[in-house]
Every structure is written in structure tokens, then in C-alpha cells.
Amino acid sequence: MPDIPLTTLILLCVAAAAAGWVDAVVGGGGLLQLPALLVGLPHVPTAYVLGTNKAVSIVGTSAAAITYTRKAPVDVRTAVRIGLAAIGGSLAGAFFAAGIDSAVLRPLIIVVLLGVLAFVLLRPSFGTAPAPGPATRQRVLAAILVAGLGIGFYDGLIGPGTGTFLVIALAAILHMDLVTASATTKVVNVCTNFGALVMFTAQGTVLWQLAGGMALFNLGGGLLGARMALKKGSGFVRGVLVVVVVGLVCKLAYDQWAAA
């Protein structure tokens, strides 16, 4: 455990709380928490930063998943199947990550995100109404392939915005309202975070003391975010989704051009 100034520790805890809130509402909390850890721990090896980030995130994600499943109509069986597929996809993505230049992929992801943003803005009804009935077997299979294997592969390859992509994919493929899509995404995220955390723990690259303190704040943020989403409904989630997508585009653009 490195020596961390009190001011830095406070800022990391605030970032963890904000990340838990954003992640519970619409995904994308890693856009806040991971950069905060990278800035706050500049001399710590990246593997320890990533491992600590997962140890923090899984707490808030699990709390949000439990909160959602108690009050939202979540098909846990389907969510777990997608989550298991996502673990396989992320492992494959991580395997290929070393041989692929992320600078080549970022512009493509930015284009996809801009298309998603336009779709959400031009379709005010997207994700605001519940599905007319249970999802067909074909749609569930498509969700496993696209949201599980496909987005899981992206998570292992690059990572930023995985939760947001999952929410959009589940709403589009399974015709979920955005609250239910967010709830289902939390169950999927628990699966993927668990798989990654097992790997980081086995490698001994988790700063458990720091993770424990930040996890309490991430837990609070996750509980608050899930309750607000359930209370305010899909319109609120849609608004946060737009903000997060814009933030993700800006971050990827910065990484691609400004930080180069």
C-alpha cells in the first residue's frame, strides 16, 4: 500500500461515489473512477490500478444489482447467461489487446457513439416503454452474442463505456425500457467484474486497503443511483445516458488526438 496524501484519498473516495452513481443509473462509471486512480496513483503500476478499480467497482455494482432486482422486472437467468458470455468475450478481447493499436480503433468507436447519440436524440421514445411481452428465443440469443460476446470482447480490448453500450444494446435488442436495461446490465457487470477480479487477485495486483475505503463510497453511490433511476424512471435514465455518451466521445477524442 503506497503512502497516499489525505487530500488525494478524499478525492478518490468522492470519485468512487460519483462513479457508483453513474454506473448504477446508466453505466460508464469507469470514466470517472479509473482516470481518478491513474491520476491519484501516478507511480503505481497500471496492473495494480486496474485491479483496485475492479475491487471497488464490484461492490457498488453488486449493491445496485440487488436493489434493481428487488424492484425492477429483471430476468436474472438471461442476464447471467449474457454475463457468462461477456466473460468469455472479455478474455478473448484481452488476449488480442496486446497486438492491436487502440489508436486505430478509437475513431471507429467515436463514430459508433455519435451514431448512438443521434439515434437516442432522434428517437425520444427509445427505451421509454416496456417490451410488449417476453423476449423471443432469437432475441435472447442475439443479446448473448452482441451484448455478451461482442461487448465483452470490446471490454477486454479497450473498455471505456462498456456499461453504456450494454444498456443501449439490451434496450434495442430485447426491447427493454431503459430502467430494466440498466438493471439487467448491473447483473451482467457483476459477472464480468467478478471474472476480472479473480484474475487480478490471483496475480496479487489489488491494493485492498485503498479498495476497501473507496468501495464504501462506491457502494453509497451505487445504492443512491439505483434508487433514483427506479424512482424517476426511463426519462431520467435517458438524460443521463446522453450526458455519459457525450462524455465518452470527448474522452476518446482526447485520448486519440489531444493526449497524443
Rank of each mutant, 00 (worst) to 15 (best):
G88Q: 06
S125N: 02
A98W: 04
A131K: 03
S102H: 12
Q138P: 00
V44A: 06
L105F: 10
G51H: 01
D101K: 11
I110H: 05
V74P: 09
I110R: 02
Y68I: 08
A63Q: 01
P132K: 10
G127I: 06
A143S: 13
I144Y: 01
V74R: 02
V44H: 06
I110Y: 09
R137A: 14
L41I: 11
P130L: 09
V39W: 09
F95V: 10
V140N: 04
A98F: 08
L122N: 09
V104F: 15
V49F: 05
I100L: 15
A85T: 06
S57Q: 02
A103T: 12
I100R: 04
L114V: 15
Y48M: 11
T52W: 02
G51A: 07
I87W: 02
F95L: 13
A92R: 01
P124M: 02
A97Q: 15
T69G: 00
G89V: 10
I100S: 09
G88L: 14
G89R: 05
Y48I: 02
R70N: 12
L121S: 00
R139P: 05
G115M: 10
D101C: 12
V74S: 08
T78A: 14
G51S: 07
V120S: 01
P45T: 04
A55G: 08
V116G: 01
A55Q: 03
A47M: 03
L113H: 06
A85K: 01
A103R: 15
L84G: 04
A98Y: 06
K54I: 03
F96L: 15
G133R: 02
V146R: 00
A86S: 14
V80G: 06
V146N: 00
L113G: 10
P73T: 07
G51F: 01
S90V: 10
L108N: 09
T61S: 12
L108M: 15
H43I: 00
T78M: 13
G83T: 13
F126I: 11
T128S: 11
G83Q: 06
R137L: 11
P130R: 06
T67V: 14
Y48S: 11
R139H: 14
A97H: 14
S62L: 15
L117P: 11
Q138H: 11
D75W: 04
V120G: 01
